[in-house]
């Protein structure tokens, strides 16, 4: 329970706070720091972030849960985000998602038993011109076909 930020993280948070008008305004970037620091955001991390920013844990959870891009507890080493918004849908993202579900043996929203992959269907990833789009952790892949997806997955360490 006695979770704490490292010296380095605290210094980074201080630098971030100086850039925002209120402590609460720095919630997202501080969540990013916490994600790196602890490998994901669980309830304990949210409480720590809330205490750090003089917010209530509910306020931090409100921000955290609004977004899909912050790692949640239990997610695998690689988080595969398939964009499921309109442009990608018109260009065949359903097929891509179905292919990944079949290949990994899980449904969207689930994690493989070996904790290697988490598959998510998410809203717009803002690369509509090159849809369908697949994001693997922080790397974006465009014009993804099932075959290309296989290649991407196989290339992962």
């Amino acid at each position: 329970m006695s979770l704490a930020f490292s010296e380095r993280a605290r210094a980074e948070i201080d630098r971030l706070l100086a850039r925002y008008p209120t402590r609460g305004a720095a919630t997202l970037p501080v969540l990013r720091v916490a994600e790196r620091e602890f490998g994901g955001i669980d309830d304990d991390v949210m409480v720590l972030v809330a205490d750090t920013l003089d917010l209530s844990p509910a306020q931090v959870r409100g921000v955290f849960s609004f977004y899909t891009h912050l790692r949640r507890p239990g997610w695998g080493k690689y988080v595969l985000q398939v964009c499921a918004t309109l442009s990608c849908a018109l260009r065949g993202c359903e097929g891509l998602a179905d292919h990944l579900e079949a290949r990994l043996g899980i449904r969207a929203g689930q994690t493989t038993p070996d904790r290697r992959f988490t598959l998510l269907k998410v809203e717009c990833l803002a690369r509509c011109g090159e849809s369908p789009v697949l994001q693997v952790n922080d790397d974006m892949y465009v014009n993804v076909t099932p075959a290309k997806a296989d290649a991407i997955l196989e290339s992962l360490p």
């Binding site: 309830d43 949210m46 209530s56 509910a58 959870r61 609004f66």
Partner: peptide, 22 residues
């Protein structure tokens, strides 16, 4: 100033709730 309640998730999944255990 206690902010026990917040909206979690978004869009049609938006859900009013407390933080677990608070």
């Amino acid at each position: 100033g206690t902010s026990e309640l917040a909206f979690f998730e978004r869009g049609d999944r938006t859900d009013l709730d407390i933080f677990p255990g608070r």
